[in-house]
């Protein structure tokens, strides 16, 4: 795919959210922290509807920053990001519209400790989605069943284990029926025996057809579920290919270096 042709097509079409085009498009996106730390360099990326992408790379490579730009938790200084036909700018209304379509799961779970599990899930549908309480609670229970944790609905987050909390966080993000799910190192803060339960939940979610971008070190997950694996280093996309090609035939020296480090032991 020619980069300039893609760019021309994007600038020609006003709102490109229809069934043909990509659901997320990054065009020559650049971001700096301060004056000198060039954290994202000329990122060009198209994400198709329903595509499942795993982003990996050494720490400091900008992978978390990349996905945080998608729901405007971080702001980019140069380039264009279009999510489901809406361009990300400083306009508050468009940012709020995008956040309704994009769900995020954090490394530190970030559940609200003063609310019960059920209240954590019904909060956004009621206050942002303007849903009546009963309907919100029904939807919440459905999502809790989906992540297999419905029996804990009345408990408070800090009464649950790490794995359970992360599954609640996934259910909370799903309550708004987002089109895109972002995962920022969801298992990095978990004890080893709890990683499996969260990954299983994510695999089931992936099989359901939702668009997923996942920053993770769990290569087993990538091999099981990903359509595309992206390797980032020093702020740019070094290599992207199918899992098969990525793990078996890495093209770049840097990719080979990285893979040997994380798969070697």
């Amino acid at each position: 795919m020619n980069a300039t042709a893609t760019a021309a097509a994007a600038t020609a079409a006003a709102a490109d959210g229809g069934d043909g085009g990509p659901i997320i498009r990054f065009q020559k996106v650049n971001k700096w922290y301060g004056n000198n730390f060039h954290v994202l360099r000329d990122i060009d990326l198209d994400v198709r509807r329903g595509e499942r992408i795993v982003i990996c790379g050494p720490s400091g490579s900008g992978k978390s920053t990349l996905i945080r730009c998608i729901n405007r938790l971080e702001e980019h200084q140069e380039g264009h990001i279009v999510v489901d036909g809406v361009e990300l700018t400083d306009d508050v209304k468009s940012v709020e519209a995008i956040r309704r379509e994009v769900g995020m799961v954090f490394q530190q779970f970030n559940l609200f400790p003063h609310l019960t599990v059920l209240e954590n899930l019904t909060l956004a549908p009621m206050w942002v989605g303007k849903m009546p309480k009963k309907e919100a609670e029904e939807r919440a229970i459905t999502q809790l069943k989906r992540v297999r944790i419905a029996e804990q609905a009345g408990k408070y987050p800090l009464q649950l284990s790490g794995g359970q909390q992360q599954r609640v966080a996934i259910a909370r993000a799903l309550c708004l029926t987002p089109k895109i799910m972002l995962f920022d190192e969801p298992t990095s803060a978990l004890d080893p025996e709890m990683i499996k339960e969260v990954l299983d939940t994510m695999i089931e979610l992936a099989k359901g057809g939702i668009t997923m971008l996942c920053v993770t070190h769990e290569m087993g997950f990538a091999k099981a579920v990903a359509d595309r694996v992206i390797f980032m280093d020093q702020g740019q996309i070094v290599e992207q290919s199918t899992p098969h090609d990525f793990f078996d035939n890495p093209k770049s020296e840097r990719t080979r270096d990285f893979l040997s480090k994380i798969l070697g032991h």
Partner: peptide, 15 residues
């Protein structure tokens, strides 16, 4: 109040 709480709230679309 941890910074992440505000981020999670923003990510859910709360003003």
């Amino acid at each position: 109040v941890a910074h992440g709480q505000g981020e999670a709230a923003s990510a859910l679309g709360l003003s």
